[in-house]
């Protein structure tokens, strides 16, 4: 691997514009941190851990657990779907089909979520296309409840975060040099074997990057649980929104936000550390 080609000073110079661009955001982060330590709910005043203490309830604990669980499961599903999609996308010869595929993967980012939720209701709702067909075929008697519960939220999370995973993986796939694969196949390795022993290790940095972006995105989701969870799936993003607008407990929302961020960062760091550990272990073998 290529490392430390660039002197430190020059590296900082190259990073400077991006720092300036992210500065207002860091300001906002700091502001939120400060707000979470406020003694008042609606303004920044005094210094207190009250907002954090108030969050120590079973309800909030369940919400944290649910958020991490759904974000994790969604990430696994997304990765299982995104890798094949990236393979297909990079092997398509016709540029027309490549574009068509790219656009259909990007669609969930474009269409208003409210309208997408409407589409899902027409398809998977209690009287949607799927349920009425299954009923007509005599397979089910009572409708399957696929929306307004965790299944619905999971579906929505997978759908909206799929594009975030596909494109970084496509970039990583493009970077694999075909010789490796040819070598593997000339050595008589089967497709599955090549996939497991050659492709995945080569893709690893890209895969980890994609997975972490998907996990982070899903952990902070709020529109999806709002629209496809029927308000019954209390993910943290939703709890935070409720605190901000009808309850006006802004310090509480800030504290909940900080907890969400710390947890997400912890998961990201831990996963990259784990990956690093396993790769170095393999390399030394």
């Amino acid at each position: 691997m290529s490392t430390e080609f660039l002197p430190r000073k020059q590296a900082l110079l190259f990073a400077a514009p991006a720092f300036i661009a992210i500065l207002p955001f860091l300001g906002a982060c700091f502001y939120i941190l400060r707000f979470s330590l406020s003694g008042e709910q609606g303004t920044i005043e005094g210094l207190s851990f009250q907002a954090y203490r108030d969050l120590m309830t079973p309800f909030f604990g369940r919400s944290v657990w649910l958020t991490l669980k759904l974000a994790f499961v969604a990430t696994v599903i997304v990765m299982v779907l995104a890798v094949p999609l990236a393979f297909v996308l990079t092997s398509l010869r016709s540029s027309f089909f490549r574009r068509l595929l790219t656009i259909s993967i990007l669609l969930p980012l474009i269409l208003n979520l409210l309208v997408q939720a409407y589409g899902w209701i027409l398809l998977l709702g209690p009287s949607g296309v799927l349920n009425s067909s299954l009923k007509a075929l005599g397979i089910i008697e009572r409708p399957l409840f696929l929306l307004f519960n965790e299944t619905g939220v999971l579906l929505g999370l997978v759908q909206t975060s799929l594009p975030l995973a596909v494109f970084p993986i496509v970039g990583a796939v493009r970077a694999i040099s075909p010789e490796y694969l040819e070598a593997a196949s000339s050595l008589g390795a089967g497709h599955w074997r090549t996939f497991k022993d050659v492709t995945v290790p080569l893709l690893r940095p890209g895969l980890v990057g994609a997975a972490s972006i998907v996990f982070a995105f899903n952990a902070s989701a709020f529109a999806i649980p709002l629209l496809l969870g029927g308000r019954r799936v209390q993910m943290m993003g939703l709890v935070i929104r409720d605190m901000i607008s009808p309850l006006f407990n802004w310090s509480g929302a800030a504290a909940a936000g900080m907890i969400l961020i710390v947890l997400t960062l912890f998961v990201l760091v831990a996963s990259s550390w784990l990956v690093r550990l396993t790769t170095t272990a393999k390399e030394t073998h």
Binding site: L114, A117, Y118, I121, L122, G125, P126, F145, L147, F148, L226, L227, G230, R231, R232
Partner: peptide, 12 residues
């Protein structure tokens, strides 16, 4: 089935 967060959904 759901909470009526969105009247448009309820209508549908």
């Amino acid at each position: 089935l759901t909470f009526g967060e969105n009247p448009g959904q309820i209508s549908e």
